[in-house]
């Protein structure tokens, strides 16, 4: 009998115990769980679980850094500058500087408004970008940040990588279920780390960054481009 651990929130599925409250009897093997089974805490799909014995060691030296050199500001898209500005607005709010915060928000709004529209946006492009982030982006950035002993960067990378895995999980489900996936169910985003929860039983704390769930925002609509 083995145990499987959710890479996003740490939930443990123990084959011996099963999940009687969800109708899964004790001694139910991992491979016999339905393929559309998701983590009861955070909603991750089965492929985001790892067998307890197979957890990789944290040997950062194994990761070969592939550093792309970018000329900082010139590379930023308007949408990215908009995120820089909303980030600085948050920084001002933390310091109780409300005038500065609202000026940064206005500036962010300006950059958002001049951001060019994607020509032929498609879900498969999201899948590709997420795949690249998960395969290269985080490995590279984690290796570099570990080497520099940059705690803040490592913290941001842990959150963002977990959130990206959940987005990947949701896209996997979306491919099977389509738009119906969000019919008659809640969609929430954690306003601190960006974790997305699709379902009706919000976890008490965010599975990624652990803030209490009153910091989640319920998402409504989203059909205005239709």
């Amino acid at each position: 009998m083995a145990k499987y651990i959710c890479a996003i929130c740490g939930f443990v599925y123990d084959e011996e115990k099963g999940l009687p409250e969800a109708g899964i009897k004790p001694n139910t093997k991992w491979k016999n769980l339905p393929s559309d089974w998701v983590c009861p805490i955070c909603g991750a799909v089965k492929s985001d679980f790892q067998k307890a014995d197979d957890l990789p060691s944290n040997d950062v030296n194994k990761l070969a850094p592939v550093v792309e050199h970018l000329d900082s500001m010139k590379e930023m898209s308007p949408l990215q500058i908009s995120a820089l500005c909303t980030n600085l607005a948050r920084g001002c709010e933390k310091q109780y500087k409300s005038q500065e915060a609202s000026l940064f928000k206005e500036l962010a709004e300006y950059y958002r408004s001049i951001s060019p529209r994607e020509n032929n946006p498609d879900v498969s492009q999201l899948v590709e970008l997420i795949k690249k982030d998960l395969e290269e982006g985080y490995a590279n950035a984690n290796a570099v940040a570990s080497k520099a002993k940059d705690r803040g960067a490592l913290r941001a990378l842990v959150w963002s990588e977990k959130v990206t895995r959940i987005l990947n999980s949701l896209l996997t489900r979306y491919k099977k279920e389509g738009e119906a996936m969000t019919d008659n169910t809640g969609v929430y985003v954690c306003t601190i780390c960006g974790f997305i929860y699709v379902g009706d039983k919000l976890p008490d704390v965010c599975p990624v960054c652990k803030v209490p769930n009153f910091k989640f925002e319920k998402i409504e609509g989203g059909h205005e481009h239709a």
Binding site: N87, R90, W159, T191, C193, G194
Partner: peptide
């Protein structure tokens, strides 16, 4: 379009900020 992708927008914006 759709609620899920509206959530994706916000999630990615928050990740970019961080």
């Amino acid at each position: 379009t759709g609620t899920l992708f509206k959530a994706f927008q916000i999630s990615n914006h928050i990740q970019t900020e961080d």
